[in-house]
Design a protein around this nucleic acid. Structure first.
Length: 136
DNA sequence: GCCAACGTTGGC
DNA sequence: GCCAACGTTGGC
């Protein structure tokens, strides 16, 4: 099972909005690497939901409820979306600052490629973040 | 196919 | 608001 980290500016689409909606399609991805990641997201996969710019923290976990299909906001079949639903809100958010102080998280996409909106996480990275969210 | 110019993202 | 990092575009 793979894990993922997806980013959104809370100004555009926040976790709170996500919870209100119950589920959402992750649309508007216009980056090939991010697109490739979307294509690999399997139903049931878990994704950390990160707020960029404002907050700069992981706020919750989403779950993939529908695998990729063509982005309805584009006519180009290259672009795809996935459907996700809120899975769990973190008790304690995990800030970028915390992540950066964790040697075990030095390699995650969020730090190494901060611009990528959908990045993959190793299982152990997922676990470390979970730990942080519970023990802050 | 190279590379400079430009646009976008996101941390600070 | 600035700037670094990175992706994309377009001229040659």
């Amino acid at each position: 099972m793979n894990y993922w980290l997806i980013k959104s500016e809370p100004f555009k689409y926040s976790w709170d909005q996500f919870e209100k909606d119950g589920k959402t399609i992750w649309d508007g991805v216009r980056n090939y690497q991010a697109r490739n990641n979307l294509r690999e997201m399997k139903k049931g996969a878990l994704c950390f939901f990160y707020h960029s710019n404002e907050g700069k923290e992981i706020v919750g976990i989403a779950k993939v409820v529908k695998e990729h299909y063509q982005d309805p906001t584009s006519t180009d079949p290259n672009w795809v979306v996935v459907e996700i639903a809120p899975f769990k809100k973190l008790k304690k958010t995990v800030t970028l600052e915390q992540i950066k102080t964790q040697p075990r998280l030095a390699e995650i996409g969020l730090v190494k490629q901060s611009r990528l909106s959908v990045s993959a996480l190793k299982a152990h990275e997922f676990d470390v973040i979970l730990e942080l969210s519970a023990t802050k």
